[in-house]
Design a protein around this nucleic acid. Structure first.
Lengths: 188, 188
DNA sequence: TGAATCATGTAATAGGTTACATGATTCT
DNA sequence: AGAATCATGTAACCTATTACATGATTCA
């Protein structure tokens, strides 16, 4: 009876709240001020989504007791135990091979939210899975490009896909290195 | 009274129909069989969108007179003069600097649809604008990254953005070269 | 007749955007 | 009192997803 799957947006909100209690307005500013996916949620998207997470018991609100210096009373949102568990389950979920290109931004977001929640071994496994899935997608795109004769611009547009996917693979390799160096620091 | 802006999806559909008359089913298969943005529209998205384009007079349907060898009668969609004009206007629209990262996939789609409609000079101008806007976005992201101290994973996730944007810049440079070689063929 | 394929479409539902409303406090 | 800022929220509207319905023809 987990009702229905959480949306991507709900997942990200839950993840941010798991990193630290925050009000709706805090979250809004976090999106606005950092290059968080370059997405700026509207109030009409944000507050109903938070309410849905509350209704599921994944977060709960604690109205601030001390009156604020300025403005309205904030509702500070905390993750519940169920919320933390659900978030952890999502972070550890396998990488769906078929949709990896489409969902790449979400996978990167997932990676950003793993920090301090998954073990280094789990993070490495995630990167390995992502690498495998992306390699496969890249190979298929490559096969497709060489198998058909396309108009010049269509061909070039698909080559853009190739190049950015290769860049992502390079990022995965580098990231894996950086993290394994962190895990085994010898110098300094 | 241009009512309201066309959606991205409507733009792409109109563009595909401008490249050649097609039925709804043709368009569906085009999305399914080619890596067209890795997006597969559902019937519930496709047919209403086509109907909206028809209602605006940008496309018109011509039911096939000859009964098909198999299955139901197709409604073949053609672009009207107004549709072609609207499409051309969209293709030639300036690149909005602020949202270039968010809209990158759409810009690439636009590039793919320019083939044979915009002049080589206009295509080059588009690539130049895109290059400028992306360079600016990249520089800003770079500034942000060096100005704040982020958790390790957040920093790495943003570096993924840097790397893919650099790959896109490399693609723009290469594409500009390829197209200028096409325009001035000397060997072969 | 029933299954398969081609092709178009609709209904229920859910979520996002835009724009507006409201609450609570400080500053001029 | 009025404007500004912080903060939460709602209503109208629109589009997409999922799942289903239907039409028309061929093949076993």
């Amino acid at each position: 009876m987990p009702a229905r799957e959480l949306t991507d947006f709900e997942r990200v909100l839950l993840g941010l709240i798991c990193r630290g209690a925050a009000s709706g307005y805090d979250l809004k500013r976090a999106f606005a001020s950092t290059p968080l996916g370059i997405y700026e949620p509207s109030s009409g998207a944000l507050y109903p989504a938070l309410r849905r997470l509350e209704d599921r018991g994944l977060i709960h609100a604690q109205p601030e007791h001390t009156a604020p210096a300025l403005g309205r009373r904030r509702r500070v949102l905390h993750a519940t135990a169920a919320g933390e568990a659900e978030h952890r389950r999502w972070l550890g979920a396998p990488v769906a091979a078929g949709t990896v290109s489409r969902d790449l931004a979400l996978h990167i977001m997932r990676f950003a939210l793993m920090d301090g929640i998954l073990t280094p071994a789990e993070v490495t496994a995630f990167l390995r899975d992502l690498q495998r899935a992306l390699s496969d997608a890249l190979a298929e795109l490559d096969r497709y490009l060489t198998s058909v004769q396309l108009p010049a611009h269509a061909q070039l547009a698909l080559e853009h896909g190739l190049m950015t996917q290769r860049a992502t693979l390079a990022w995965i390799a580098r990231t894996t290195d950086v993290l394994s160096d962190d895990a085994a620091p010898e110098s300094s």
